[in-house]
Simulated scan of single mutants.
Amino acid sequence: MEIRKEGGLRGAGAPDEARLAKINAYARTPLTAETVYCFRVRLCDDRPDRDFERFDTAALPRMAELFCGKTGICDHQWSADRQVARIFDTQVVREDDGASCLMAEAYVLRTERNADLIADIEGGIKKEVSVGCAMGQARCSICGEPYGTCAHRKGAVYDGETCLAVLSEPLDAYEFSFVAVPAQRAAGVTKAGKEGYGMTLQDCVAKHGSPELSDALRRLSAEAELGRAWRKQLEDGLVALGLSLDLGASEQTLRKAAAALDDGQLQAWKAALDRRAAERYGGGPQLVRTQGSGKDDEAYLI
Rank of each mutant, 00 (worst) to 15 (best):
L220N: 10
G193Q: 05
T35D: 07
D296Q: 12
G132C: 03
S100G: 03
L43K: 01
H76Y: 11
K22C: 05
D236P: 04
M1G: 11
G282I: 08
T29Y: 12
D116F: 09
G72E: 00
S214G: 15
S221I: 01
T149A: 11
R110L: 08
S250I: 05
A271N: 10
T149I: 08
A80W: 12
F55K: 05
R228V: 10
A240C: 04
K191T: 09
A240S: 11
Y300P: 00
A277L: 08
S177M: 00
G7F: 08
Q291E: 07
V108M: 08
V288G: 09
L117I: 01
D96P: 06
D51R: 11
G144F: 04
V205T: 14
A64E: 00
K270S: 13
A27E: 06
A119K: 06
L243Y: 15
N114C: 06
V179G: 06
K5D: 10
G136W: 03
E17W: 04
L301M: 10
R28V: 13
L254M: 13
F52Q: 01
L247E: 00
R19C: 07
G7T: 11
G198H: 00
I121F: 01
V157R: 15
A187R: 14
I73N: 01
T190F: 04
V205E: 05
F176G: 03
A119N: 07
L213H: 09
E175C: 01
V93W: 13
A268C: 02
G11D: 03
F67C: 04
A25H: 14
A259K: 03
I302H: 09
R42F: 12
A18S: 15
A299E: 10
T149L: 08
R47D: 12
E128L: 05
E279Y: 14
R54N: 15
D236A: 05
D16N: 11
A138V: 01
G98T: 12
Q137C: 03
R40H: 04
E128S: 07
R10C: 06
L226P: 01
L117S: 03
E53Y: 03
A229N: 08
D51V: 11
C163Y: 09
W269V: 09
A119E: 04
N24C: 00
S79Q: 14
R231T: 05
W269E: 10
P15W: 03
A165L: 00
S141I: 14
E235G: 10
W230C: 15
F176Y: 04
R110A: 11
S250L: 02
H76K: 09
K270G: 14
A186G: 13
R289H: 07
F178I: 04
S250G: 13
L20M: 03
D297M: 12
E6K: 06
E95N: 08
D263Y: 02
E235S: 14
E105R: 10
T32K: 15
